[in-house]
Design a protein around this nucleic acid. Structure first.
Lengths: 338, 338
DNA sequence: ATGTGTCTGTATAACGTTGTAAAACATGCT
DNA sequence: AGCATGTTTTACAACGTTATACAGACACAT
């Protein structure tokens, strides 16, 4: 087993605390002593036991990031940004995945990693406000993503309604009239929970376009397969849409694939807009137009929020913070027939 | 702050250990006692402090997975598989990313998370055998990926040379004669380190095709941009290749995008094969032919290996284990002009 | 009654670290 | 020399948990 402070102290003939002082670069240690102890440390190959340190200090320096699915590059890219942001504050990130299951999201929220993480950043899918109200764990929690909660926790998300409207406006501005929406969860389609769907409705109404519910394609999940299936359903449904706004890039990509397979031209026959700006979209054969949330800002703000609550006034009011976004027009959108 | 065993014990009027026994479902506790203690637990909202438990037990139940880049879906997908496999053994996964930097890989290897992780699965890029030989940390280490090390650690990787030969054979079998390789790291191009490059050389020679070094496009990284840049370099270099075997899917996708931009048809003019079988390749407009390593098996074997060393005879000899792979032919490869 | 054994529950000592307070040791000043 | 002053080192007690060893209680056969 690894050597402990005690072993080093014994070998160097000093007290345990002195070794601890050397390890932690405590200033008041004479150079001679420091060298003697260091020699013992090297000889034994001593490495501090972080678990013990954590117990003693009551802090671990670890914050958890819980995302629904690592296979979605949006979350992979976001995770990378969070890890970097956390490193800047000397925090380490523990990555959890919830598979978007409410049960697992609740579990994470209730602190099943009690005391091993100092704080939590969660991007929920199924979680409900009621799940949050009974929360007992006292680790700071920051919520990410498209849904809004009436609970006293910081929430960091772009203005999804406005962003969705921007995307739809882009399409209507190109002269598209039948703009479909892909990605409402089946059970959710009627509820106002889905902000992007709400944005779609609002903008269509504002543009004086028909807000035809047969243009909404519900799905089960949020992946490429779901996007392709929804697109096929839309095409089978009769009058073809001339544009598609997808809940995210993955579904947009799946939809594009489905369109190509059925001989429909993108962007001429059907224009497609996604959401997330994952790198993949830039490299698809027809590069994808998309809404690009500022992932760096989201990650930075989330980490800053957690750290602030950890190292200061916890009693500050919970906030809704809205980072920026931009619409990135690429090849998948154009005027009809262009 | 959260309640501790002591608080619960006090409230229930029993000893600390009894509460511990209840928490851990120790069998010899009378139902009455169990209920009394449970009531106190519920009342205080007690949650065990895992840090303390870890310190006491000397185990944390956490294994680390260190990958170069989460943005590469191969690693994201692999990570998902590892997390699932670990969960089956009641282990939690801590995800690290090394950005493929040798320094960070060495750091991970030397156990900078000393005692907070029980074991480590590392997919190295720049790490050298010499870095491994001086390792002092005693947590089990399993190595993944394309490189081979002469060090006493388990290594889990498909037979990269054979897999690369399969890919090249597929291309030559379709009648391709000028088969390029994309992805040799610049400094590595001459060394035999890159197994997939070696496979390319061996198979070309075996097929009696010219093993022209001008068909090797060196790159800096392993992403889509690198693939596109390498493809452009290849196209600028004079006589055009009629097929490309890329180090991984991401680079293959980048290469395909570059080909399309220059009006070269895939697969008719140039056929493309990738490596990894990321989901993205299935959905690109021209679906990507690729070598598909058995990610589930890799993840399962890696976890099993770590767990075995943790819970048993550590002295068993280090092994090289080779999971399976398959070639998945899709749309990006065909006979010339087909 | 006495010993023998099983079953519950308890007191205490770790695990490896750091904060606190006090002890040991210099140093400078009367 | 004696004493305040400041620096370096030490002893000890935590942090919250579990393992160990042991003490009662009770049943049962002697």
């Amino acid at each position: 087993m690894g050597a402990s402070l005690k072993d080093v102290a014994q070998l160097a003939g000093v007290s345990v605390k002195t070794v601890s002082n050397v390890v932690n670069n405590y200033p008041h240690v004479t150079p001679g002593m420091r060298e003697r102890v260091q020699r013992a440390i090297d000889e034994l190959g001593y490495r501090p036991n972080l678990t013990a340190r954590h117990l003693r200090k009551g802090r671990t320096g670890i914050i958890a990031l819980a995302v629904p699915e690592l296979g979605n590059p949006y979350f992979a890219e976001l995770a990378g940004a969070v890890i970097d942001a956390a490193a800047r504050h000397d925090y380490t990130v523990l990555l959890d995945h919830t598979a978007g299951q409410r049960e697992r999201e609740v579990l994470v929220t209730q602190g099943f990693r009690a005391h091993v993480i100092d704080g939590l950043i969660l991007s929920p899918i199924e979680l409900e406000t009621s799940d949050l109200l009974g929360r007992r764990d006292d680790a700071p929690l920051v919520l990410l993503g498209e849904r809004e909660y009436e609970a006293p926790y910081d929430q960091i998300a772009i203005d999804n309604v406005a962003a969705a409207r921007t995307a739809v406006r882009h399409l209507s501005g190109l002269g598209r009239r039948r703009i479909a929406f892909i990605g409402a969860r089946r059970e959710m389609a009627r509820r106002p929970a889905h902000l992007r769907l709400r944005g779609w409705r609002e903008e269509l109404t504002a543009a004086g376009l028909p807000c035809d519910e047969s243009l909404v394609a519900a799905t089960d999940g949020y992946g490429r397969w779901d996007g392709a299936a929804a697109m096929n359903a839309l095409l089978d449904r009769g009058e073809r849409p001339d544009a598609v706004f997808a809940y995210n890039d993955l579904m947009a990509l799946g939809a594009m694939r489905a369109l190509v397979e059925r001989g429909v031209r993108v962007p001429q026959d059907v224009s497609v807009v996604g959401f997330d700006d994952v790198e993949e979209g830039r490299f698809s054969t027809v590069a994808l137009t998309t809404v690009a949330p500022d992932k760096q800002a989201i990650a930075r703000l989330a980490v800053e929020r957690v750290v602030a609550r950890l190292t200061g006034d916890r009693q500050v009011e919970a906030e809704r913070i809205q980072p920026g976004y931009t619409l990135v027009a690429r090849e998948s959108t154009a005027a009809p027939g262009a």
